[in-house]
Simulated assay, not measured.
Amino acid sequence: MTQPLAHILAETIRVRGPISVAEYMAAALGHPEHGYYTGHDPFGLGGDFTTAPEISQMFGELIGLWCLLAWQAMGSPARLVLAEIGPGRGTLMADLLRTAQVRPAFAAALEVVLVETSPALRNRQVQTLAGHKVTWVERVEDLPPGPLLVIANELFDALPIRQFERKDGVWRERRVGLDPDGGFVFVAGAESNAPELPAEAAEGAIAEIGEAGLALATWLGRRLCADIGAALIIDYGHESGGIGDTLQAVRRHRYHPVLADPGRVDLTAHVDFARLAAAARQAGARIDGPVSQGLFLSRMGIEERATMLMREATPEQAAALAAGARRLIDPSEMGTLFRVLALASPTLPKLTALNVPQGSSPP
């Protein structure tokens, strides 16, 4: 085991015994020296995965339009904290800020704050957002007070989760231990009575609880009760909690063994939107959505925006615009797998593109 983080985790397990999936995931992604996000840029064709802002400029532009409409619904305050948590390369924010220029008063009101812990990604964001006034913080708790809009695109799927396995009629926390050869392996831990776990499940079933995500949703809900504003969450996941192992690893755009090469591969798990919404609602926020990403972007006018851009585009550019729009909204691509949820201050009017007809299920 020559990789530094693998060695550190193996030694921890030898001293303390098997660790939780959440602890393994937190170290693999965020170790201050050897974590996946700490030292390199994983985005784009040359990295491990591609996110929506890298697929098409229209994604960030339409998020910018949504922010403009939310600002107007807030009464167009003269100062607005615009925060993005986990801003990647800064591409979404760059496209958003370009769109903000269509309403000078909105652009002038913005105080842009990026919540970022990775030195490598922060350096990339500095380059992408050159010419813009931006502040960086490492924790959401450090966001300035006042009217607030928060964007979180493909953030919650990378927050650590706990896993539980049904064995002999009870739930046991799934942990990461070592096999006889020193490799990482899943093992069953102590019995768990966590209230979030279903009372009945088949033998061998896996359940997941994303405590870090729920804590963030709770914090956002409380903040949106203290200061008017909203948070827009875009991620892949399921509408309601269920049974299933969704933990996965990706490297160079291909699936990778989950417990292989910690610190060198991306680890994610599906977002449980029902639990996120419930946590934020219990903290006092109003919930809009979730709806599918395809429906959200269509309601925000992605087809019209694509047509507008194509008028001034070369044939190659027009083809790329069409392909990007299709990838973002087509049900066979990202259109239904990704969902959009808004948390809002209780006094804020319903937000455009996230309304769900009464008595119907979000598409």
Rank of each mutant, 00 (worst) to 15 (best):
R326S: 10
D330L: 06
G294H: 02
E312S: 08
H253A: 01
G301H: 10
V271E: 01
V258E: 02
G242I: 10
L297R: 05
T307Q: 14
A306G: 04
V340G: 03
E333A: 15
T314G: 04
G263P: 12
G289Y: 10
R311S: 05
L351D: 03
G335K: 02
R299Q: 09
L348F: 08
L276A: 05
D266L: 08
T268R: 01
S345N: 08
T307W: 07
P290V: 05
L328W: 04
L297W: 01
A342T: 07
E239D: 14
L267N: 00
P346H: 03
L259K: 03
T314A: 12
A313D: 01
T314P: 02
A320N: 10
D245A: 10
D272I: 06
M310H: 00
L295Y: 03
F338D: 05
D288Q: 04
D288T: 06
F296C: 13
H253V: 00
V271M: 06
S298I: 11
L247Q: 04
G284L: 05
D266A: 13
P262W: 00
A269R: 04
M308D: 10
A320H: 06
D272T: 14
R305M: 12
R311E: 14
T352C: 06
H253K: 07
A277N: 02
A320I: 09
R264I: 04
L309V: 02
P315V: 15
I287P: 07
Y255E: 03
K350T: 09
